[in-house]
Design a protein around this nucleic acid. Structure first.
Lengths: 326, 326
DNA sequence: CTGTTAGCGCCTTCAC
DNA sequence: GTGAAGGCGCTAACAG
């Protein structure tokens, strides 16, 4: 296949005048080899340009050195930021990350589960909108925010507490007719704590709720928000389930001649976009994405080694002030 | 490693009462097997839940079924959209996509080249800002926009022609003091045709150039644009090298009290963001990212098979009208 | 310390 | 049409 014929450990052994076992031990560092023969082997390896074939090494080791990340679409600031940090963690471990962007295609999501059985990857970070129902709890899978089943652990932010704080923040800023727009997923997800916290907080403050939780695909945020404003035109504060929704809220508000934050306060969720957008700088709930990624990978690696792991790991989020609150 | 002990083709063969060779032929479809034994083998496979081990299969086949995509950062609309479509293409071929986000870390970029020699991936789509200089033209690598060396083919848009059209568009809209901001890369890149076209078009129209082509990292767009406006405060039109820069231009203009498009026209480049942002809708040069991805993968697959490929494939881009031009 | 051997799971001759 | 054997490249276990 490749132009230059592959140089194997056998070639190195021959060149150095030793057996393959010795060459293997010398090169992999496992087992003891006399310093001089080791040097000779290393020189032979360098001379021949030997590079260990991972494929063969992994077949032997019964692992792939690969982790898959499944997400609805990689073309989205939250998922791509998540992927960025997951890759960082995995790379530091010497492994590789394969990305599968499902485009909300359930069939494609099903296929990825096969990848474990096929020995294409060692494990999966599963981020989906769908309910797969029947995921084998023995499989080395972890998820972010989603409850994929009894045996599948997940990492998540302290959604409930931080969402309460966000709503309180809107109230403190003077809003009373506060609405909440939050995407709904088919699978049970921690994200529902966001609007539950909203409902509880509003109720405790004796304020009426204006909740809208549609199912929608990424890219339809503007339509969702236009709909929301039609339902509740008198709204003077919005707690959005994502920064993309918050951004849409801002622009729809502008369309309707409302000023932010004078007429309308907005708090988003996720803490992405800040690196990209100029104005407005959104007040938002910033999730600690690097920490979420770190924990997800840590959990997954333990699961792959079949160690016990907690079924849930929570990472604190925080509110960062921007220009969309008073 | 895995909980359930792995079921191999040998188990299937035993169960069906045949030899492994026969089982292999029956299951892989290659070679002839009598219809009845074939049926028996298939039933045995299903009964045992046999899934072929790709690792072993690939070791034999001397391929990995994996393609790597290297990009400066996956947390960026252009690269993540590119990755999305590349993954689509690769997935359709039955292969998988490994993403490496280099964070502009040259060392990490170097390491990825090893992945081919290590037989971790079959080939690489290489998108970098750096000059690697010494890339072996025999390696199965293709790039997007960048000239990585004599033997490395690349896909690109018709940057020069479309950029001329973009500048003409600004002139047609009434701008005369047109500036151009375009990121500069260490490696020779097709993107330089963007500002070359700008310079030529301006010159031919007898207009003075206001060009700024800094090296910067993703996320620093606002700073870049503030600097540009300090250098050329009288600008009344901007041709930006990316939509992220165009977006920054819009917000810096707002900071300075300028109205878009009345006081300042803006044309961006890439055609991302449209799915995300509400307002303004940018006039921009939309690259055909699905086509770029398709061509890149097609080229790469051919290279992996060691077939002849053109050293350059050009995909037409087009200008899409938005609200930032008159 | 070192060489040989036996697989990892699969596919591919090669005789039968 | 079928079974046995050899090998992809590497590592681990066993003698020497």
């Amino acid at each position: 296949m490749r132009g230059k014929i592959m140089v194997t450990i056998k070639d190195v052994a021959t060149e150095a005048g030793v057996g393959v076992g010795t060459a293997s031990r010398a090169l992999s560092g496992k087992g003891s080899v006399s310093p001089e023969t080791k040097k000779r082997i290393e020189q032979a390896a360098k001379k021949l340009g030997f590079v260990p074939n991972q494929q063969a090494r992994n077949l032997k080791k019964q692992s792939t050195g690969c982790i898959a990340v499944l997400c609805p679409t990689i073309y989205h600031p939250f998922f791509s930021k998540m992927a960025l940090h997951i890759e960082d963690e995995i790379y530091a471990l010497g492994d590789r990350m394969v990305v599968v962007s499902s485009q909300d295609n359930l069939r494609k999501e099903k296929i990825i589960l096969e990848m474990i059985k096929q020995r294409r990857v060692d494990g999966i970070v599963f981020i989906t909108h769908y309910d797969h129902g029947d995921i084998d709890p023995d499989l080395p899978i972890v998820s972010v925010d989603r409850h994929l089943g009894a045996g599948i652990p997940y990492v998540t932010s302290n959604n409930y507490e931080i969402s309460r704080a966000a709503v309180e923040r809107l109230i403190a800023g003077g809003s009373r007719k506060i609405g909440c727009v939050c995407g709904e997923t088919a699978v049970e997800s921690e994200t529902r704590h966001r609007y539950e916290a909203y409902l509880d907080t509003m109720s405790e403050n004796g304020l009426p709720a204006r909740l809208y939780k549609p199912q929608f695909r990424h890219g339809e945020e503007m339509d969702v928000m236009r709909k929301f404003f039609e339902m509740y035109p008198d709204v003077d504060g919005i707690f959005a389930g994502s920064d993309m929704l918050a951004n849409a809220a801002y622009h729809v508000a502008s369309e309707r001649g409302m000023n932010v934050p004078q007429d309308l306060q907005i708090i988003g969720f996720d803490g992405v976009l800040r690196e990209w957008k100029g104005r407005p700088i959104f007040t938002t709930v910033e999730q600690d994405i690097p920490a979420l990624a770190r924990e997800a990978v840590r959990l997954l690696m333990k699961r792959i080694r079949r160690e016990e792991v907690p079924s849930r790991v929570e990472v604190p989020a925080r509110i960062v002030e921007g220009e969309t609150t008073r």
